[in-house]
Amino acid sequence: ADPCHDEGGAPRGCVPGLVNAALGREGAGVQHVRAAGHAGLRRFGPAAGTPRRPPDLRRGHHKPGVLAFGLADASAPQRDPHSAPRQGFELVFVSLRFCSAPPTSVALLKSQDHGRSWTPLGFFSSRCGLDYGRVPAPADGPAGLGPEALCFPEPQAQPDGGGLLAFSVQDGSPPGLDLDSSPVLQDWVTATDIQVVLTRPTMLGDTRDAMAMVPYSYSATELQVGGRCKCNGHAARCLLDSQGHMICDCRHGTEGPDCGRCKPFYCDRPWQRATAREAHACLACSCNGHARRCRFNMELYRLSGRRSGGVCLNCRHNTAGRHCHYCQEGFYRDPGRALSDRRACRACDCHPVGAAGKTCNQTTGQCPCKDGVTGLTCNRCAPGFQQSRSPVAPCVKTP
C-alpha cells in the first residue's frame, strides 16, 4: 500500500511515522549536574542568548544544568534514519524520566536554526512567577489565539523516587487549532534542536545558601522526543542523501529536503502543504509531450478559477501555445495523428508559385491560392484554367 496515494492512484496527504528522535543519538550517559543558583533564571525569551552547545556541565558551577542535543545535526556521527532532516522535525511530545528526584524547575527550549537561537516551548515549576516570570498555565490552555510557552506544574515525583517530565505540543496550543490549517502551529512544532534546562534542586531545602554551596546531581534514564520528519504532508518516509543528511522521500510532484516546493515541470498550480482532506499535489504542466519546461503564471491561474497556471516553455515539434496545443505558423494539424504525436504538426508546403503565401490554415492545411489555382498546396490550376508562362498569374482562363 502506498500511504501517499489511494487505491485508485489519487494522491492523498501522507506523513512519516512517529519516531523517537532521541533514539540512537549520541549522549554522554548520565550527566552529573552541579547545583544551580536562582540567579539569571528569568532570562528566557526568544533567542535569549543561550549557548549553542551544552556547556561543560562539570565546570558549570554557577550555570543551570543544561541537557541539549540536536535533532537534525548533520555532523552527528550516527546515520540514524530516525533522526530529523536538516530542515526540522515536527515535535509531538518530549518526555524525560529521572532516576533521581526531579528538579522542581525545568525549562524546555527548542531551536529552529540548529542551535543559533532558542525559544521556549514550556516551563515546569511550582514557582512560575519567581523562576520564570510567568503565571501558571490556565487549565484551558493559552489565552491568545496562537500557541505559547506556558508554565506547567513541576515534574511529578514517582513512588520509586524518580520523576517524569512530560510535555506535549498540544499543551501549549489553544484548543481547536489545527496543524493542517495553522501556519503558526506548524511553526510552533518545528524544531531542529531541543534543550532541557534543569534548575533549583529539590532536596537541599529552600535556602539559597545551601544550593549555592553544596554540589548536587540529577540523573536521568530515558529521554524521548516524539515526532516526525517534517515533510509537509508529501512524504511517508525520510532517507539519507549522499551527504548523510536526512531528506524526505517526496511524492506528489514535490521536491526539496522537506518537500517544500514543486518539481520543475510540476508548476501548474502553487505549492501547498498537504492536509488530511486534500493532498494539494503539485500538478505537471499540460504540454502534450512537446515541452520539458514550464513556468507558473498567477494571473492565468486566477483567470482559470484557480485550476491551472502553467505555461509551457520552448514547445518542440513545431507546436506552439500555452499548452503546446496548436501548430506554429507554417504548419497545420494533421487530423490523422494525436495531438501528442511528434508529427502532429505538418509543414504547409505551399507551392512557391501557385500559393499567395507560405502560411496555411492551421486546421485544414489549406494554402492561400492565387486566382485560378486550386489544391491544398495550390499546385494545380482550377477547372476552366490552364497553366500560363507567368509566375505572377500561373493559371489563366482557358480561351
Binding site: P352, V353, G354, T374, N379, A382, F385, Q387, S390, V392
Partner: peptide, 23 residues
C-alpha cells in the same frame, strides 16, 4: 476533372528573376 500539377519548367522567369524560388 483532375488538373495536372503546375510545371515549373513552363514558367518564364525573365522578368521575375527575384521571385524565382530556389530549387
Amino acid at each position: 476533372e483532375v488538373m495536372p500539377t503546375l510545371d515549373m519548367a513552363l514558367f518564364d522567369w525573365t522578368d521575375y528573376e527575384d521571385l524565382k524560388p530556389e530549387v
